[in-house]
Design a protein around this nucleic acid. Structure first.
Length: 105
DNA sequence: TCGAATGACAGCG
DNA sequence: CGCTGTCATTCGA
């Protein structure tokens, strides 16, 4: 219940690896794990026991904020604080800010 | 222990 | 715009 699941652990780690001012998508994380569980990834972050995990840096493939347990409003605020510009709940130059966890960057 | 439902999504008709 | 597909977790029996 409060222990790292193999899958979850991967998700948390990847998300945690996201550099500041950069973002990633659920799809990319899932792809990095060689899975298509976009949902599972989102679920992992949703219940993430590691509140330190920057789950706010994970957005949808559309570039939209998606959702946030604390309210997307807060998510946007945090992202803006990170230096990311949000417009109409969408990330500006979202494609440029995408961080590929699989890229072992 | 097994089955069904849920969820911060994605892709296609 | 709406339905279906995919994966893991959780709830219920």
């Amino acid at each position: 219940m409060f222990f790292v699941k193999d899958f979850y652990s991967k998700v948390y780690e990847l998300v945690f690896k996201i550099p500041k001012g950069r973002i990633t998508t659920y799809k990319l994380v899932a792809e990095a794990l060689n899975k298509r569980a976009y949902r599972a990834v989102g679920n992992a972050l949703n219940k993430n026991p590691y509140k330190s995990v920057p789950c706010h840096r994970v957005v949808k493939s559309d570039g939209s904020i998606g959702g946030y347990s604390r309210g997307k409003r807060k998510k946007i605020k945090i992202l803006r604080r990170e230096g990311i510009t949000i417009k109409n709940n969408k990330i500006v130059d979202f494609k440029k800010l995408i961080f590929n966890p699989k890229n072992k960057n």
